[in-house]
Amino acid sequence: MKTRVIQDVPQHRDTRTRTRTGLAGWIARHRLTSFFVLAYVLAWWSWPLYRMDVWPRQAFNAVGALLAALIVIAVADGRPGFRDLGRRMIRWRVPWYFYAFALLLPVMLRFGVSALNPAPDPEWAGLAWGSFALTFLVRLVNPLDGPMAEEPAWRGFAVPRLQGDLSPLASAAVLGMLVALWHLPLLGDIGPAGLIATFVITFVYVWLFNRTGGSVLLVLLFHNAQGFLTMTDLGYRGADLSRQEWYECAAWAVVALVLIVADRDAWSRPR
């Protein structure tokens, strides 16, 4: 496969951008910095207020990533930026095997790892597959849930701009670290294995995004397939759940390593 590094985003580095002043001008000149700062602030804002007894509860607002991308696009790029993101959101004309990869690999990996670490009391007969299908569809369009809240932001906005200056491999490493740290407030729920898995699976996301011509739709499907069937749905609890999390983390690390080694062209900048 030929490499296609995705970086075709409107940057507007013209005289108007260079001469803009104030906060809007700073954001236009520092799109990525502005985006990541906003993504953290909008997702974490209730935590310090809760600690100071100013806010009644603490919450992790995943939609902060999506809002950050939309704010920066509105200030720095305007309509061309929204058109670019919109085209990526509906970019569906990709080879069929990428759909198979996005939809089947997460489920196959989960069940495959489950064979190595069987749940002590799985209730297969009680799994309502119709409910899972409905959950899949709702998560696909719900901006308050992980897939829609994150993919237009991390992949649709950040990856093309990171790859304007860095190779896809370096971009994936930088993004993986920032996204893993962004999930830090969820440490009590996802554990250390979840944070590490978030880092390593970012390489898989970036590979899929680039190989599909910058399709946010495909990485959105991939993210959705990852989480609509949870480990607790399969009966994992306590120590078994923790072990399963580490096993899946290791499995995704293997997938990422295989993609890096087997498809080296995908990770270098075009000559």
Rank of each mutant, 00 (worst) to 15 (best):
1 M>Q: 09
2 K>N: 15
5 V>C: 04
6 I>M: 13
6 I>W: 06
7 Q>V: 03
8 D>Q: 08
11 Q>R: 14
12 H>T: 08
16 R>W: 08
16 R>H: 11
19 T>W: 08
25 G>K: 00
26 W>A: 09
26 W>S: 03
27 I>N: 04
28 A>W: 04
28 A>Y: 07
29 R>G: 02
33 T>E: 10
34 S>H: 05
35 F>T: 05
35 F>I: 05
36 F>K: 02
36 F>M: 07
40 Y>E: 03
40 Y>A: 02
41 V>W: 10
43 A>F: 01
50 Y>R: 08
54 V>A: 15
60 F>P: 03
64 G>C: 03
65 A>M: 14
66 L>R: 09
68 A>V: 10
69 A>I: 00
72 V>G: 10
72 V>E: 10
80 P>K: 12
81 G>E: 07
82 F>T: 02
84 D>A: 15
88 R>N: 10
89 M>K: 07
94 V>A: 07
96 W>E: 06
99 Y>D: 00
101 F>I: 00
111 F>C: 06
115 A>S: 13
115 A>W: 15
116 L>G: 15
117 N>E: 12
122 P>E: 14
123 E>M: 12
124 W>D: 09
125 A>K: 09
126 G>C: 05
130 G>K: 07
135 T>N: 15
135 T>R: 15
136 F>V: 05
137 L>V: 15
138 V>T: 14
147 P>N: 08
147 P>E: 11
147 P>G: 07
149 A>V: 04
150 E>S: 03
152 P>V: 11
154 W>I: 09
154 W>E: 06
155 R>K: 09
158 A>C: 05
160 P>G: 01
162 L>D: 08
163 Q>E: 14
164 G>N: 11
165 D>I: 10
167 S>Q: 09
168 P>F: 03
169 L>E: 08
170 A>S: 14
171 S>Q: 05
171 S>R: 00
172 A>I: 11
175 L>K: 00
175 L>N: 00
177 M>S: 04
177 M>N: 03
180 A>R: 03
182 W>T: 01
183 H>V: 10
189 D>I: 09
190 I>S: 01
193 A>M: 09
196 I>M: 05
197 A>N: 13
200 V>S: 01
202 T>A: 13
203 F>Y: 13
206 V>F: 10
207 W>I: 07
210 N>R: 04
210 N>K: 02
214 G>T: 06
215 S>N: 10
216 V>W: 13
217 L>I: 09
221 L>V: 06
221 L>T: 02
230 T>D: 07
230 T>R: 07
230 T>C: 01
231 M>I: 11
236 Y>M: 05
237 R>M: 11
237 R>I: 12
239 A>E: 15
241 L>S: 06
243 R>Q: 13
247 Y>A: 15
251 A>I: 04
253 A>L: 14
254 V>N: 08
254 V>E: 06
258 V>Q: 02
259 L>Y: 03
260 I>Y: 12
263 D>C: 13
264 R>Q: 14
270 P>N: 12
270 P>R: 14
271 R>T: 14
